[in-house]
Protein backbone atom coordinates (compact mmCIF):
# COMPACT_ATOMS: atom_id res chain seq x y z
CA UNK A 1 0.00 0.00 0.00
CA UNK A 2 1.37 3.38 -1.00
CA UNK A 3 0.68 6.12 1.51
CA UNK A 4 0.01 9.69 0.36
CA UNK A 5 -0.45 12.56 2.78
CA UNK A 6 -3.44 14.84 2.24
CA UNK A 7 -1.10 17.72 3.10
CA UNK A 8 0.35 17.74 -0.40
CA UNK A 9 -3.00 18.46 -2.04
CA UNK A 10 -3.62 22.16 -1.25
CA UNK A 11 -0.69 23.40 -3.33
CA UNK A 12 -1.32 20.87 -6.13
CA UNK A 13 -5.00 21.84 -6.38
CA UNK A 14 -4.20 25.57 -6.15
CA UNK A 15 -1.88 25.27 -9.17
CA UNK A 16 -4.45 23.24 -11.13
CA UNK A 17 -7.18 25.81 -10.41
CA UNK A 18 -5.00 28.68 -11.64
CA UNK A 19 -3.61 26.88 -14.68
CA UNK A 20 -7.02 25.65 -15.78
CA UNK A 21 -8.29 29.22 -15.71
CA UNK A 22 -5.36 30.73 -17.60
CA UNK A 23 -4.55 28.15 -20.28
CA UNK A 24 -6.70 25.87 -22.38
CA UNK A 25 -5.82 22.20 -22.86
CA UNK A 26 -3.78 21.84 -26.06
CA UNK A 27 -6.45 19.77 -27.81
CA UNK A 28 -9.17 22.32 -27.08
CA UNK A 29 -7.18 25.18 -28.54
CA UNK A 30 -6.25 23.12 -31.58
CA UNK A 31 -9.90 22.32 -32.21
CA UNK A 32 -10.92 26.00 -32.00
CA UNK A 33 -8.18 26.91 -34.51
CA UNK A 34 -9.20 24.08 -36.83
CA UNK A 35 -12.90 24.97 -36.82
CA UNK A 36 -12.25 28.72 -37.10
CA UNK A 37 -10.92 28.03 -40.60
CA UNK A 38 -14.20 26.40 -41.62
CA UNK A 39 -16.40 29.34 -40.64
CA UNK A 40 -17.53 31.32 -43.65
CA UNK A 41 -19.72 34.00 -42.03
CA UNK A 42 -17.72 37.28 -41.81
CA UNK A 43 -19.14 38.03 -38.35
CA UNK A 44 -18.34 34.46 -37.27
CA UNK A 45 -14.75 34.83 -38.46
CA UNK A 46 -14.41 38.16 -36.60
CA UNK A 47 -15.68 36.47 -33.41
CA UNK A 48 -13.28 33.53 -33.82
CA UNK A 49 -10.40 35.98 -34.18
CA UNK A 50 -11.28 37.64 -30.86
CA UNK A 51 -11.60 34.24 -29.18
CA UNK A 52 -8.14 33.20 -30.36
CA UNK A 53 -6.58 36.56 -29.43
CA UNK A 54 -8.11 36.26 -25.98
CA UNK A 55 -6.57 32.82 -25.49
CA UNK A 56 -3.14 34.27 -26.32
CA UNK A 57 -3.55 37.30 -24.03
CA UNK A 58 -4.78 35.25 -21.06
CA UNK A 59 -1.86 32.80 -21.29
CA UNK A 60 0.71 35.56 -21.79
CA UNK A 61 -0.49 37.82 -19.00
CA UNK A 62 -1.57 35.14 -16.54
CA UNK A 63 -5.15 36.38 -16.61
CA UNK A 64 -8.31 34.30 -16.38
CA UNK A 65 -9.56 33.38 -19.86
CA UNK A 66 -13.09 34.27 -18.76
CA UNK A 67 -14.31 36.43 -15.88
CA UNK A 68 -16.50 33.53 -14.84
CA UNK A 69 -13.79 31.40 -13.27
CA UNK A 70 -16.48 28.89 -12.51
CA UNK A 71 -17.64 26.45 -9.93
CA UNK A 72 -14.70 24.10 -9.32
CA UNK A 73 -15.75 20.62 -10.35
CA UNK A 74 -13.07 18.19 -9.19
CA UNK A 75 -12.67 14.55 -10.19
CA UNK A 76 -10.47 12.44 -7.92
CA UNK A 77 -9.57 8.96 -9.14
CA UNK A 78 -7.86 7.05 -6.35
CA UNK A 79 -5.78 3.95 -7.03
CA UNK A 80 -6.80 0.94 -4.98
CA UNK A 81 -3.22 0.53 -3.79
CA UNK A 82 -3.12 4.05 -2.32
CA UNK A 83 -4.02 5.05 1.20
CA UNK A 84 -4.61 8.75 1.73
CA UNK A 85 -3.62 9.91 5.17
CA UNK A 86 -5.63 12.86 6.46
CA UNK A 87 -8.72 14.74 5.30
CA UNK A 88 -8.63 14.85 1.51
CA UNK A 89 -11.82 16.87 1.10
CA UNK A 90 -10.56 19.56 3.42
CA UNK A 91 -7.18 19.61 1.64
CA UNK A 92 -8.84 19.99 -1.78
CA UNK A 93 -10.98 22.89 -0.59
CA UNK A 94 -7.93 24.51 0.96
CA UNK A 95 -6.33 24.31 -2.47
CA UNK A 96 -9.36 25.85 -4.19
CA UNK A 97 -9.28 28.76 -1.74
CA UNK A 98 -5.52 29.22 -2.17
CA UNK A 99 -5.74 29.09 -5.96
CA UNK A 100 -8.64 31.55 -6.06
CA UNK A 101 -6.77 34.11 -3.97
CA UNK A 102 -3.31 33.69 -5.47
CA UNK A 103 -4.68 33.55 -8.98
CA UNK A 104 -6.92 36.63 -8.78
CA UNK A 105 -9.91 34.51 -9.69
CA UNK A 106 -13.47 35.69 -9.21
CA UNK A 107 -15.28 34.40 -6.13
CA UNK A 108 -18.56 33.13 -7.58
CA UNK A 109 -19.92 30.67 -5.01
CA UNK A 110 -22.75 31.57 -2.64
CA UNK A 111 -24.00 29.56 0.32
CA UNK A 112 -27.70 29.24 1.24
CA UNK A 113 -28.52 29.20 -2.49
CA UNK A 114 -32.23 29.82 -2.04
CA UNK A 115 -32.22 32.50 0.65
CA UNK A 116 -29.22 34.57 1.77
CA UNK A 117 -26.89 33.72 -1.12
CA UNK A 118 -23.81 34.89 0.80
CA UNK A 119 -20.56 34.75 -1.18
CA UNK A 120 -18.02 32.36 0.39
CA UNK A 121 -15.31 34.63 -1.08
CA UNK A 122 -12.92 31.84 -2.08
CA UNK A 123 -14.93 29.55 -4.40
CA UNK A 124 -15.27 26.85 -1.76
CA UNK A 125 -16.77 24.38 -1.45
CA UNK A 126 -15.73 22.62 -4.64
CA UNK A 127 -17.96 19.91 -6.15
CA UNK A 128 -15.88 16.76 -5.67
CA UNK A 129 -16.39 13.34 -7.27
CA UNK A 130 -14.41 10.35 -6.01
CA UNK A 131 -13.78 7.14 -7.91
CA UNK A 132 -11.56 4.11 -7.33
CA UNK A 133 -9.25 2.96 -10.11
CA UNK A 134 -6.54 0.34 -10.42
CA UNK A 135 -2.94 1.08 -9.49
CA UNK A 136 -1.14 3.15 -6.88
CA UNK A 137 -1.63 6.66 -8.26
CA UNK A 138 -4.10 9.46 -7.58
CA UNK A 139 -5.43 11.25 -10.63
CA UNK A 140 -6.97 14.66 -9.95
CA UNK A 141 -8.75 16.79 -12.55
CA UNK A 142 -9.90 20.34 -11.89
CA UNK A 143 -12.63 21.62 -14.18
CA UNK A 144 -13.78 25.22 -13.64
CA UNK A 145 -17.28 25.38 -15.09
CA UNK A 146 -18.89 28.73 -15.86
CA UNK A 147 -22.60 29.11 -15.34
CA UNK A 148 -23.37 30.72 -18.70
CA UNK A 149 -23.05 27.23 -20.12
CA UNK A 150 -23.94 25.23 -17.00
CA UNK A 151 -27.36 26.94 -16.90
CA UNK A 152 -27.93 25.87 -20.50
CA UNK A 153 -27.83 22.14 -19.80
CA UNK A 154 -30.84 19.93 -19.31
CA UNK A 155 -31.85 16.42 -18.26
CA UNK A 156 -34.80 14.36 -19.38
CA UNK A 157 -36.18 11.01 -18.30
CA UNK A 158 -37.19 9.52 -21.67
CA UNK A 159 -39.16 6.29 -21.97
CA UNK A 160 -37.56 3.26 -23.64
CA UNK A 161 -40.03 3.56 -26.54
CA UNK A 162 -38.75 7.05 -27.36
CA UNK A 163 -35.40 5.41 -28.11
CA UNK A 164 -32.73 6.77 -30.44
CA UNK A 165 -35.06 9.28 -32.07
CA UNK A 166 -36.05 10.68 -28.69
CA UNK A 167 -32.42 11.09 -27.66
CA UNK A 168 -31.51 12.90 -30.88
CA UNK A 169 -34.55 15.19 -30.69
CA UNK A 170 -33.83 16.09 -27.07
CA UNK A 171 -30.15 16.90 -27.71
CA UNK A 172 -30.97 19.05 -30.73
CA UNK A 173 -33.77 20.82 -28.89
CA UNK A 174 -31.49 21.72 -25.95
CA UNK A 175 -28.77 23.04 -28.27
CA UNK A 176 -31.27 24.98 -30.37
CA UNK A 177 -33.04 26.61 -27.45
CA UNK A 178 -30.25 27.12 -24.97
CA UNK A 179 -27.09 26.89 -27.06
CA UNK A 180 -27.02 30.53 -28.21
CA UNK A 181 -26.63 31.68 -24.59
CA UNK A 182 -23.93 29.17 -23.73
CA UNK A 183 -21.12 30.90 -25.69
CA UNK A 184 -20.96 28.77 -28.83
CA UNK A 185 -19.12 27.13 -30.49
CA UNK A 186 -19.98 24.49 -27.94
CA UNK A 187 -18.63 21.28 -26.54
CA UNK A 188 -21.62 19.00 -26.06
CA UNK A 189 -21.36 16.39 -23.30
CA UNK A 190 -24.13 13.79 -23.26
CA UNK A 191 -24.96 11.17 -20.65
CA UNK A 192 -27.26 8.28 -21.51
CA UNK A 193 -28.57 5.68 -19.06
CA UNK A 194 -28.00 5.05 -15.37
CA UNK A 195 -30.32 6.92 -13.03
CA UNK A 196 -31.35 10.57 -12.87
CA UNK A 197 -28.42 11.35 -10.59
CA UNK A 198 -25.59 9.66 -12.45
CA UNK A 199 -26.74 10.55 -15.98
CA UNK A 200 -25.83 14.16 -15.16
CA UNK A 201 -22.39 13.09 -14.00
CA UNK A 202 -21.92 11.01 -17.18
CA UNK A 203 -22.62 14.10 -19.28
CA UNK A 204 -19.97 16.08 -17.46
CA UNK A 205 -17.46 13.23 -17.63
CA UNK A 206 -18.10 13.09 -21.36
CA UNK A 207 -16.90 16.69 -21.62
CA UNK A 208 -13.47 15.90 -20.19
CA UNK A 209 -12.90 12.70 -22.15
CA UNK A 210 -9.77 13.08 -24.32
CA UNK A 211 -10.80 14.89 -27.52
CA UNK A 212 -8.98 12.50 -29.82
CA UNK A 213 -11.09 9.57 -28.56
CA UNK A 214 -14.61 8.56 -29.57
CA UNK A 215 -16.85 6.34 -27.48
CA UNK A 216 -15.51 2.75 -27.58
CA UNK A 217 -18.94 1.49 -28.70
CA UNK A 218 -19.03 1.95 -32.48
CA UNK A 219 -22.75 2.71 -32.61
CA UNK A 220 -22.38 5.43 -30.01
CA UNK A 221 -19.27 6.81 -31.74
CA UNK A 222 -21.36 7.05 -34.91
CA UNK A 223 -24.09 8.89 -33.03
CA UNK A 224 -21.51 11.39 -31.71
CA UNK A 225 -20.48 12.18 -35.30
CA UNK A 226 -24.06 12.38 -36.53
CA UNK A 227 -25.12 14.76 -33.75
CA UNK A 228 -22.12 17.01 -34.38
CA UNK A 229 -23.10 17.28 -38.04
CA UNK A 230 -26.75 17.93 -37.20
CA UNK A 231 -25.87 20.60 -34.60
CA UNK A 232 -23.62 22.33 -37.11
CA UNK A 233 -26.54 22.52 -39.51
CA UNK A 234 -28.62 24.53 -37.00
CA UNK A 235 -26.95 27.76 -38.15
CA UNK A 236 -26.53 29.18 -34.61
CA UNK A 237 -22.87 29.96 -35.24
CA UNK A 238 -20.19 31.51 -33.02
CA UNK A 239 -21.85 33.45 -30.17
CA UNK A 240 -25.24 32.77 -31.73
CA UNK A 241 -24.61 35.38 -34.41
CA UNK A 242 -25.22 32.93 -37.24
CA UNK A 243 -22.77 30.72 -39.07
CA UNK A 244 -21.67 27.20 -39.84
CA UNK A 245 -19.85 26.36 -36.63
CA UNK A 246 -22.12 25.83 -33.63
CA UNK A 247 -20.32 22.94 -31.93
CA UNK A 248 -16.71 21.75 -31.86
CA UNK A 249 -17.26 18.29 -30.43
CA UNK A 250 -19.96 15.91 -29.20
CA UNK A 251 -19.05 13.22 -26.69
CA UNK A 252 -21.36 10.62 -25.17
CA UNK A 253 -20.87 8.43 -22.11
CA UNK A 254 -23.35 5.70 -21.27
CA UNK A 255 -24.18 3.37 -18.40
CA UNK A 256 -26.64 0.48 -17.97
CA UNK A 257 -30.08 1.60 -16.93
CA UNK A 258 -33.41 0.34 -15.60
CA UNK A 259 -35.83 -1.63 -17.81
CA UNK A 260 -38.35 1.19 -17.45
CA UNK A 261 -36.26 4.17 -18.44
CA UNK A 262 -33.90 6.00 -20.78
CA UNK A 263 -32.37 8.96 -18.91
CA UNK A 264 -30.54 11.55 -21.06
CA UNK A 265 -28.55 14.57 -19.96
CA UNK A 266 -26.96 17.31 -22.06
CA UNK A 267 -24.21 19.34 -20.41
CA UNK A 268 -23.02 22.17 -22.61
CA UNK A 269 -19.62 23.80 -22.35
CA UNK A 270 -18.64 27.05 -24.01
CA UNK A 271 -15.65 26.96 -26.40
CA UNK A 272 -13.42 27.60 -23.37
CA UNK A 273 -13.52 24.00 -22.16
CA UNK A 274 -11.22 24.35 -19.17
CA UNK A 275 -9.61 21.55 -17.19
CA UNK A 276 -6.22 20.57 -15.88
CA UNK A 277 -5.07 17.21 -14.59
CA UNK A 278 -2.28 16.01 -12.28
CA UNK A 279 -1.17 12.47 -11.49
CA UNK A 280 0.29 11.91 -8.04
Amino acid sequence: MREVSANIFPSIVADLVKEANYRLPFGVKRLIVEFSKKESSPLGRYIFKQMLDNIEIAAKKGMPLCQDTGIQEIFVDIGRKVRIKGNLEKAINKGVSKGTKEGYLRASIVKSPLFERVNTKDNTPAVIHYKFISGDKVKITVMPKGFGSENAGDVKMLTPSQGLGGVKDFVLQVVKEKGPNACPPLFVGIGIGGSMSNVTLLAKQALIRPLNKSNSDKKIAKLEKELLQKINRLGIGPQGAGGKITALNVSIEDFPTHIGGLPVCVNLSCYLLRYKRAII
Binding site: N54, I57, G148, C270, Y271
Partner: peptide, 11 residues
Protein backbone atom coordinates in the same frame (compact mmCIF):
# COMPACT_ATOMS: atom_id res chain seq x y z
CA UNK B 1 -23.07 41.73 -27.71
CA UNK B 2 -19.41 41.43 -26.81
CA UNK B 3 -17.65 38.14 -27.48
CA UNK B 4 -18.42 35.89 -24.52
CA UNK B 5 -15.32 34.47 -22.90
CA UNK B 6 -13.02 37.06 -24.48
CA UNK B 7 -12.54 38.49 -21.00
CA UNK B 8 -8.78 39.03 -20.97
CA UNK B 9 -8.91 40.72 -24.38
CA UNK B 10 -11.80 42.98 -23.37
CA UNK B 11 -9.98 43.92 -20.12
Amino acid sequence: VAVGGAAALLA
